[in-house]
Design a protein around this nucleic acid. Sequence first.
DNA 1: TTACATGCAAAGCATTTGCAGATAA
DNA 2: TTATCTGCAAATGCTTTGCATGTAA
Lengths: 150, 150
Amino acid sequence: MVSSTTAYDPMSAYSTAIKRIEKSGIRPTKQRRILAKIIFDKGKRHISAENLFDEVKKEDRKISMATIYNTLKQFTNIGLIREIVVDQNKSIYCNNNQSHYHLYIEDEGKIVDIPTKNIDLNIPSIPACLQLHNIDVIVRLRTLKDKAKS
Amino acid sequence: MVSSTTAYDPMSAYSTAIKRIEKSGIRPTKQRRILAKIIFDKGKRHISAENLFDEVKKEDRKISMATIYNTLKQFTNIGLIREIVVDQNKSIYCNNNQSHYHLYIEDEGKIVDIPTKNIDLNIPSIPACLQLHNIDVIVRLRTLKDKAKS
DNA sequence: TTACATGCAAAGCATTTGCAGATAA
DNA sequence: TTATCTGCAAATGCTTTGCATGTAA
């Protein structure tokens, strides 16, 4: 039995994903399987729609952008991946389901995970009519040479 | 003498802003003064380009969208306002220069400030070649009725 | 068989840009 | 006077949509 995804296991991440797709009610179509494989078979990573499109092409296959966007949205809805909002002009998704935060190197567009245990966070109490959905922490860094520029 | 903006003073926020514009080297043109007034004369708030456009119109004036976008970017560059990245499809800016985090009610697009002192944050040490630019903390909330929906 | 999924091309939308005319210093 | 700014309209780039075709169950 597949337990809740508290630990990331690269060896089974793909098959776990397929099981979760099946359970969620969306069909494990060819395109969804290809995308799940690319997303989950290479360890923890961050992906954009364009990345995925290119990686599919590298394998001499083709999935349309429309399908890639739809699939990313569906995978997000069923909790398979998580959207990281770091940059206004590009959606980036994260295949790491463990609780974690992000380090973002602004000049390079590079994202690195920080395990939650390295961050100590106490937020104020939440009103009864609302529920906590997520806490995003983005530590924004710049390279030193860019400091001089600004 | 205008000290660094560690405290928000609604009474002088506008004139402080004008002084900082002058110091920064960009011209305090008519449009920039109007926008600075709207941004800083109504207490702490969050603003989008569209908001500003509408508020200018309400005063029976007109500033083009291009100018509003340019101005928001310039004000951000000189540190007058800060961009909050909460939503992929809309840029939102914050006129609060004090260190603080955000509570974001996703279904309503509503943003509320949380003073930094209410959050306890320890981040890992930063490599020498990088400098900390900012730490964004976004506490994402949902209304309970939307929980049922998902 | 049929409800759901895919993919193309077109549309949508926030934001940016080119450039001619306007303006601050 | 002249470097800078403004604003229009057109361009851009990411994302979504409409719809005809294809596919999983």
